[in-house]
Design a protein around this nucleic acid. Structure first.
Lengths: 353, 353
DNA sequence: TTGTATGCGTTATCAA
DNA sequence: TTGATAACGCATACAA
């Protein structure tokens, strides 16, 4: 009713229960040991009556720990980041942690600033989905023994738990599917590598596959900068495919693997501009499933990442470390799932339109 | 080099500068008044040497303020929420605030839990994008004088600053466009209203428009629950349109307004299942622009919300309140922007395929 | 203009 | 088993 709504403190509880603050604190933190049942009851009642709950701030000041987890993400615009964030936030919350968010908005050099800001709030650990271009503060945090878990992107020089899609597997899965669908001329399109580990790994995996299947396919890759470059690359690809594989089933139709959802959309745009039809003049398979993938043209084939799982797993790793788990850095790679749709249905078994 | 990396405190600075802690604190907080230049220099040097920065936690404990802003969002899965979050986080960061995130994952009854968790960290104010089904804690916070700003969704009984798309304008814009394109039979499809103000307002605005233009159009609305219900509604709509407007230019083609991006996707799916072509057998206009809208079928016409702006504006409102701005609750409605694409190009002036 | 002392809400170290 | 009491890092009323 009145205006004075000061949250009750440990002192209030102590007074109400007729004991000392120390006793209340003990009840809270070491309930099991050292407590006469009678006093315990009184304290418990007082806490209930006053609706008391300890101030995390004061606890943080005293203990140096805060029940806070810092989450810094390179670009919250990226739907993949959001999906991970979602899983991680949920898992943290369930474990009694709150998430402090720092979004770098793709300014790679602000990473240290973010970590420091978060550090000053005594976050207990970090989940990082960043480039690692600005690793100073991360190394510092690691050195101080603050647990860090990386999602999706490794940092070189930072040997900590790492959770990610199994990129090797995802690419192999994609390539095998395209092979099975009759495509013989493949191209991987990624954003500029820019030292982002996921991009590098996907490209490497693609190279590996093409190398070990050199008798069946040929492949190349492009780092898509601008839309005109992308269009040129696609034209060149189709030229090669026509020459190389005339007579094959599927008649010289090439296929593109888009290394993430952003690229997928750009390829879709380019193909539209060229007036080609997905699944006819060109095959397309995108890494990252999206809600709209089924409805573009004949449907876009994708490899779906288990995004929420990735987020949850990341949080769990961190929380285990927070609870004292020791041991070498772990690496947890989750498998992607192939979603076959119309954009890769040309070729063997399908009649060209 | 060594392991002991204790952040330096105000006491360290004081010792280093040969002054008292109080003096250092004064330098930090009241630099302008009360300071001999000589001492100021010494303190400043010491701070620089030690790389000192104050602990926000300790400050929060002392002042009751924390440079923290609590952001609670109904469902971070929703791209619109993310876009707003992005703008808000950015603006907060620029103003020296950090964001604590609480995602309710669409569990409407956890709102109070979120506010309380955030409150205990002494966040200075709240940005809410929630249903308001569980308003207890919000009312409590407001009563305590903690500023709250609502985005996109009003809470009844909570008379605070509110930032949103101008729903009335967006719907009128949509309707006028459809009218101009020759559509005469309109239908608004929303998610179940569920007391969500944005949905209610859009529906109301639609009714208003239809009423005041009763001589030109007829319209109805549907709350889409499941996919089969949606399909039935679409069939019925097309039936009505065929009967009502034979002979009209555009020949009895109806149009649908999808009240948000989620609904848009569901309509797209339903239309695909019916084997209709967007822009031919049916018109479609969605509220919320998305990166994929141009590439579905002939392109989906949309009304784009200025999402980042909404987020930034929301944060600015809150920060103004934090800086002491008084006065009645404000309402800031931003205009949406019409993006015309192929899904609404049938009708007058366009020849049916 | 500067320093001393106190308290913010906890936890932890001592005695009792 | 419990209770004073001293920190944690900072801001401020008061004294100097």
């Amino acid at each position: 009713m009145t205006k004075n709504v000061r949250r009750s403190t440990i002192a209030d509880v102590a007074r109400q229960a007729g004991v000392s603050k120390a006793t209340v604190s003990r009840f809270l933190n070491h309930r099991d040991t050292l407590l006469s049942p009678e006093i315990a009851r009184r304290v418990e009642a007082a806490i209930a009556q006053l609706g008391y709950s300890p101030s995390p701030m004061a606890q943080a000041l005293k203990r140096g720990r805060s029940r806070l987890i810092g989450l810094v993400v390179a670009d919250i615009t990226n739907p993949f980041s959001v999906a991970v964030l979602r899983g991680a936030e949920q898992a943290c919350r369930e474990a009694g942690y709150l998430v402090m968010l720092f979004n770098m908005g793709n300014e790679g050099d602000r990473e240290s600033a973010g970590l420091q800001a978060l550090s000053s709030y005594k976050v207990e650990g970090f989940i990082l989905n960043t480039t690692g271009h600005d690793p100073g503060a991360a190394l510092e945090a690691a050195r101080q023994g603050k647990p860090i878990v990386l999602v999706d992107r490794r940092h070189e020089g930072l040997n900590v738990d790492f959770v990610s899609l199994d990129n090797q597997h995802a690419i192999a899965l994609s390539c095998r599917h395209l092979l099975g669908a009759g495509y013989r001329e493949l191209m991987l399109i990624t954003e500029p590598l820019d030292k982002v580990s996921a991009r590098i790994e996907r490209k490497q995996a693609f190279h590996d596959f093409v190398q070990t299947h050199a008798d069946e396919v040929s492949g190349c890759d492009v780092e898509a900068q601008d839309q005109t470059g992308l269009i040129e690359a696609l034209k060149a690809l189709r030229g090669r495919a026509a020459v190389a594989t005339t007579g094959c089933p599927g008649g010289g139709v090439p296929a593109v693997i888009a290394a993430n959802a952003v690229v997928t959309l750009r390829v879709i745009e380019a193909v539209a501009q060229l007036g080609w039809r997905l699944g006819h003049e060109i095959g397309l398979l995108g890494i990252d499933d999206t809600p709209w993938a089924p409805y573009i043209g004949p449907g876009i084939s994708t490899v779906a990442q288990p995004t929420t799982e990735l987020g949850r797993l990341t949080a769990h790793c961190l929380i285990q470390r927070l609870q004292g788990l020791d041991g070498p850095a772990r690496q947890m790679l989750l498998k992607g799932k192939l979603m076959v749709r119309g954009s890769t249905r040309t070729g063997r078994g399908a009649e060209p339109a």
